[in-house]
Write a protein that binds this DNA or RNA. Structure first.
Lengths: 307, 307
DNA sequence: CAACGATGCCAAGTTCTGCTTATGACCTGT
DNA sequence: ACAGGTCATAAGCAGAACTTGGCATCGTTG
């Protein structure tokens, strides 16, 4: 770090621009001796006379004019910095790197983006489909600003730690049966009644939820197929591949007519929410995206948790 | 003036470069809370969160990284400024605008310039022939850094005021007679003996000196010709145009064989010296030129006045 | 799993920077 | 000669800012 106080450099600049110490002091809102002392200190710091004093004011020496030029450049840089920061805080600029899990990408994201185009037109939102575990990693490494993730009650509280979790809405898990299933329309159907079925499991974490739910219902599911694609899962069910548990948003995003969707007692919901590094909510651009998401999620479920 | 303390900006920069507040503090030679407080103040000043804190250190927000970039630019500018100043004080750079009166330009200047080429090869000396009165004006206006001027004892102390005078050497005034002058070789010749002669006067100030000297010798000279060119004056004397008073340096610079040069009692000397704005001696480049001139002038006369 | 080491923040105390007021010197112009 | 401009210096005081000490949190390690 150079041994020159940059504040004094700026003071020096205003003095040079004004042609006299007193005038510079007035512009700074200070008294003349204050500025005079600063200039003396600056000259001591740089070890050279910068100004020739006379009763008519001051004129810079050669070293003084060169230094004043540098000071001008620094002042301009400061000006630019404050302006850029103002733009960032006023959302006239800013980028948010946003990651969401696939099914939310289909359902929630488009309206949110269009909402943002209105409220913060100059905000750049770069968006990425990403599974929750990877999202957590990327958030930690600072490669992502905000992530829309889901979590099942059974899942450990994750390694939150430095991350911040804001629940958005509850995504009910539904049972999906083939149309010709004998109890497809049975109003008294429970999860335990499906103990002997073969199952189509979803992604790894959805499968964990299936197993957890089944355990509390008293059985261990026989998993025949595994896919994290909602359509594939439903088609498998449709064609007799088994039964499945799928979240409501997935079923809403990619409805398949030829299957029966049932809400069963004892099925958990998964929570959909936002994840970000602790403190990132303070970043205006991030907050803007969060607000848009909250506004979009609110009407979707009465049990939505506001933040 | 932007409302952001540039020192804090530099502190912020070192913290970002180090990845943690503590490490930044160590580099600055401070304690961690000191830096922490500065960062908090900076964030308050700009109204935005700049760093995301974690137990692993800090990572800049978007605003933080942009600001850090500006801070880098400012630091570089400061670095460049200190370097340039160091060059100026070390005489690795620098320009001196130097003015001298004509006859000195011929005699003193060439050796001085060659001397400077050795001691300060990267020093720019721009040189200008200028009469003392004009030199004073240009010094006042800051268009000249240093001037070599002469002054006669009779001349008022000039309007020194804000200017600084350093005597260099004494320039004796000599009488110039035609070779066929009846008393050309008379060892007892005095100025009073030339009362009835007609005179060739020099420049305005030299003429003033002639009149002043003549008055103390008891007569008023009859001036027939006037010229500020030393050669012309001597030629006029040679061809019977009259007698003249000319400074030694002029006679030395432009010797004319066919005249007789006499040192007479009661003739004043003119002082040759340096003039500069008060305080300009502190400028290294100016001091270098002055030193070279002093070194050059010293052997020329035993009565040289050192500074 | 507990302890350690790293990170950060906060509160309180003390040092010292830095601003003000007051004064004096100097040059300029009337 | 004096009034009005410039700047420097000295003394005093307030607030900034650095330090010390204590604590919370997180990640790692034995």
């Amino acid at each position: 770090m150079p041994g020159m106080d940059p504040r004094r450099l700026l003071i020096f600049r205003t003095v040079v621009r004004n042609g006299s110490i007193g005038a510079g002091a007035r512009e700074l809102g200070w008294t003349q001796p204050a500025v005079s002392q600063h200039l003396a200190a600056l000259e001591k710091e740089v070890g050279t006379t910068l100004l020739l004093r006379s009763s008519a004011g001051v004129t810079p020496t050669e070293a003084g004019s060169r230094l004043a030029q540098h000071a001008e450049a620094i002042a301009a840089q400061l000006e630019a910095a404050t302006e850029e920061l103002a733009d960032l805080t006023a959302l006239r600029r800013g980028t948010v790197r946003f990651g969401t899990f696939p099914s939310a990408a289909a359902v929630l994201l488009p309206p949110v983006l269009s909402r943002l185009r209105e409220t913060a037109p100059d905000l750049d939102v770069t968006f990425e489909e990403i599974e929750p575990p990877d999202a957590i990693a990327k958030l930690r490494e600072g490669e992502l600003d905000l992530a829309l993730v889901f979590r099942y009650p059974c899942s450990d509280v994750d390694a939150e730690g430095t991350l911040e979790w804001s629940p958005l809405l509850e995504d009910r898990v539904m049972a999906v049966l083939p149309q010709d299933h004998p109890r497809a329309e049975d109003p008294d159907l429970t999860l335990a009644d499906l103990a002997e079925e073969t199952w189509v499991a979803g992604c790894e974490r959805c499968r964990a939820n299936l197993i957890s739910s089944a355990r509390t219902a008293g059985f261990t599911p026989t998993v025949r197929h595994s896919t994290d694609d909602g359509v594939v899962a439903q088609r498998l069910v449709q064609h007799g591949g088994g039964v499945a548990l799928l979240p409501e948003t997935v079923l809403e995003a990619t409805p398949v007519e030829e299957v029966v969707v049932r809400s069963l007692p004892g099925l958990d919901s998964r929570m959909i929410g936002l994840l970000n590094r602790r403190g990132a909510q303070a970043i205006p651009a991030v907050a803007a995206v969060r607000d848009a998401l909250v506004a979009e999620a609110a009407p979707r479920t009465s049990s939505a948790v506001m933040i």
